[in-house]
Amino acid sequence: MSVDAGFVRKMFAGLEQGDGAGFFAHVADDVDWTVMGTHPLAGHYTSKADFIAGTFAKLGKVLPNGAQLHVDDLIVTGDVAIVELHSEATAKNGFRFDNHYCWICHFKNGVIVRVRAYLDSVMVARLFTENPIELRERS
């Protein structure tokens, strides 16, 4: 079953309006999400809970108003959406976190089941260098 651009735009509107729960309702619990790069958010996440804990929760500790994501463009073909986004966020220390992203989202029955996400790794590393947090759970 393919998805259309209107459906994808509506889904991402939740993120644009700060409604992460609305967006994540369209993400499979066992999503396969890879954040490319070598920075504190990079990694291969095999569940929605792990992805949120490994990325959005960490960002929430250093970006008081969240990542403030906005869709710039999207291309939808069949069950794949390529979504270009940018953030307009300010970190606790005043650092402007105006990052750019490309998420390649694979859908199955209207739900995201796999994502490969690209972003500015250097900017993410600088964000956490200037706004340190405990990045790993304690054993």
Rank of each mutant, 00 (worst) to 15 (best):
44 H>C: 12
126 R>S: 11
47 S>H: 10
19 D>I: 12
47 S>M: 10
2 S>V: 07
15 L>W: 12
53 A>D: 06
69 L>F: 01
51 F>Q: 08
74 L>R: 03
23 F>R: 00
15 L>K: 08
82 I>G: 04
121 S>N: 07
6 G>A: 12
71 V>D: 00
121 S>G: 07
38 T>C: 13
36 M>K: 13
59 L>V: 11
43 G>F: 04
10 K>S: 11
46 T>V: 13
114 R>D: 06
134 E>K: 12
64 P>Q: 07
11 M>T: 09
20 G>N: 14
113 V>Q: 07
118 Y>A: 07
56 F>G: 13
36 M>Q: 11
84 E>Q: 08
44 H>N: 13
124 V>Y: 00
66 G>S: 08
125 A>K: 05
2 S>Y: 11
40 P>C: 10
54 G>S: 11
100 H>D: 07
121 S>A: 07
79 D>L: 03
74 L>W: 02
20 G>W: 10
25 A>E: 04
79 D>C: 05
32 D>A: 01
101 Y>E: 00
46 T>M: 11
124 V>N: 00
97 F>N: 03
34 T>E: 14
36 M>S: 08
48 K>M: 04
6 G>S: 12
23 F>M: 00
79 D>V: 04
47 S>Y: 11
134 E>S: 08
125 A>W: 02
79 D>E: 11
138 R>T: 15
25 A>K: 02
17 Q>T: 10
32 D>F: 04
124 V>D: 00
55 T>D: 09
110 G>N: 02
119 L>I: 05
5 A>H: 14
85 L>D: 01
63 L>G: 01
64 P>G: 02
32 D>W: 06
98 D>H: 12
137 E>N: 15
6 G>P: 08
101 Y>G: 00
124 V>P: 00
21 A>N: 09
134 E>W: 07
129 T>R: 08
81 A>D: 03
10 K>M: 08
50 D>G: 05
49 A>M: 14
28 A>H: 14
50 D>V: 06
8 V>A: 03
63 L>H: 01
22 G>P: 01
9 R>C: 06
121 S>E: 06
100 H>Y: 13
75 I>G: 09
87 S>P: 00
62 V>M: 06
74 L>V: 06
34 T>H: 10
40 P>N: 05
112 I>M: 03
47 S>N: 07
19 D>E: 08
118 Y>G: 05
86 H>W: 13
113 V>T: 12
70 H>G: 14
38 T>A: 13
52 I>F: 14
57 A>K: 08
87 S>F: 01
77 T>F: 06
32 D>R: 04
125 A>I: 08
36 M>A: 08
47 S>K: 09
45 Y>K: 05
19 D>L: 14
113 V>A: 06
46 T>S: 07
129 T>D: 11
129 T>H: 04
27 V>T: 03
17 Q>N: 11
124 V>S: 00
111 V>G: 13
85 L>E: 01
57 A>S: 09
128 F>V: 10
15 L>R: 10
2 S>M: 13
82 I>F: 04
38 T>F: 15
55 T>E: 07
54 G>D: 13
58 K>Q: 04
105 C>P: 01
22 G>T: 02
52 I>V: 14
124 V>L: 02
34 T>I: 10
137 E>W: 03
112 I>V: 04
99 N>P: 10
11 M>K: 06
